[in-house]
């Protein structure tokens, strides 16, 4: 429920022509979302904003429980594409201290806890020490 609500809030912000609290003096700065590889997403931005959590939830069950690999919706694929080119991660402070990296920027703005990365590796092309390709 929280996530759906958050997605709606996000979507509203994205489409509203005159954001209520834009500009200087706002209490919470609006997220600065940097898209590193525009136009490559598996679905249009509106759909991703609304449904990415559902897509990932169903994919994770198919992959882990049924063993289906190579699905279009994949957290690792999201990370590979959306990780900041400067810091290599989808989490943390963006380059130059302006805003935060892709996943964290919106999630911290709408105060939705980002559990994925307690287990999943948030860095693109991360090679755990010693692992062969």
């Amino acid at each position: 429920m929280m996530r759906i609500l958050a997605a709606m809030v996000l979507a509203m912000i994205a489409v509203s022509p005159a954001p209520t609290f834009a500009g200087e003096g706002e209490r919470t700065p609006k997220p600065v979302v940097t898209i590193e590889n525009p136009g490559k997403c598996v679905a249009p931005a509106e759909e991703m904003r609304r449904n990415h959590m559902e897509m990932l939830k169903h994919q994770r069950d198919r992959t882990l429980r049924a063993g289906i690999r190579g699905e279009p919706a994949s957290l690792n694929a999201c990370i590979e594409c959306h990780a900041s080119k400067a810091t290599g991660s989808v989490l943390g402070t963006a380059e130059g201290g302006k805003g935060r990296n892709f996943c964290e920027s919106c999630h911290s703005y709408v105060a939705v806890k980002l559990d994925c990365f307690e287990c999943h590796q948030p860095k693109a092309k991360f090679k755990a020490a010693g692992v062969k390709p």
Binding site: I79, E118, C119, H120, Q121, K123, F126, A128, A129
Partner: peptide, 16 residues
Amino acid sequence: VPLTEQNPEVPRGQGC
């Protein structure tokens, strides 16, 4: 403990 060095193909983390 919290982990940060996971192999991207092998997610694992605290409390599981």
